[in-house]
Design a protein around this nucleic acid. Structure first.
Lengths: 99, 99
DNA sequence: ATTTTATATTGACAAGTTTCAATATATAAG
DNA sequence: CTTATATATTGAAACTTGTCAATATAAAAT
């Protein structure tokens, strides 16, 4: 459960949610993210660390850049947790698409 | 988006996640919740306020009791947000049940 | 080699959060 | 009407978080 708390904590910040929206399905470097946000570079670095530590985002180095992308599995598992574990629905009873 | 941040903030606390697990599909009073938790009464009241303000839990008075239950819609909408809005999948592309 | 560019780390401060003791309110029971 | 029970509010202490300025690291360009 500690892991899930960590994930929700990471999602519970406006700037980090903005970051995730910007990343979307791309793989993107920190410098590009900075252009869209109204925060300083060390602050962004701090937010990216929190997103990476929680498992929501993964990163790789490419030369002098660090490229970030959203970790699909973590998002899916957490959405599942909400629907199934947290609310007591089995997968058969409820689905986020209504099917 | 502020609403979603509020919800994730509310979910980002170990005691509040425990509370949601205890409530599950029931309707339950604060005094019953207190029995399962290792926190004081004012602290529980504080957590319930946060859960209610975010829309995750709804409450009604019944005599001297306040009964709480999980708000199904909020959970569903937030799980949808994660799958669809946050990660760019359309409802048709991805589903938490894998269908 | 030196400079520029991209990112991370450190240290500090302001703001927010969690918790509890004390107190208040409100309903029910005696 | 007084007492007991259930919950909420207030105020304060300890802890955590978000932010930035300054500095460090590391790769690329000149």
């Amino acid at each position: 459960m500690k892991d899930v708390v960590k994930i929700f904590k990471a999602l519970g910040d406006e700037n980090r949610l903005k970051i995730l929206h910007i990343i979307g399905t791309q793989e993107i470097c920190a410098c590009k993210l900075l252009e869209y946000l109204e925060i300083g570079q060390p602050t962004l670095s701090h937010h990216m660390k929190i997103l990476c530590d929680s498992g929501i985002v993964s990163s790789r180095k490419d030369g002098k850049w660090t490229l970030y992308k959203i970790n699909k599995d973590t998002i899916k598992h957490t959405a599942d947790y909400m629907q199934v574990t947290l609310f007591g629905n089995t997968a058969a009873q409820s689905c986020c698409n209504g099917c």
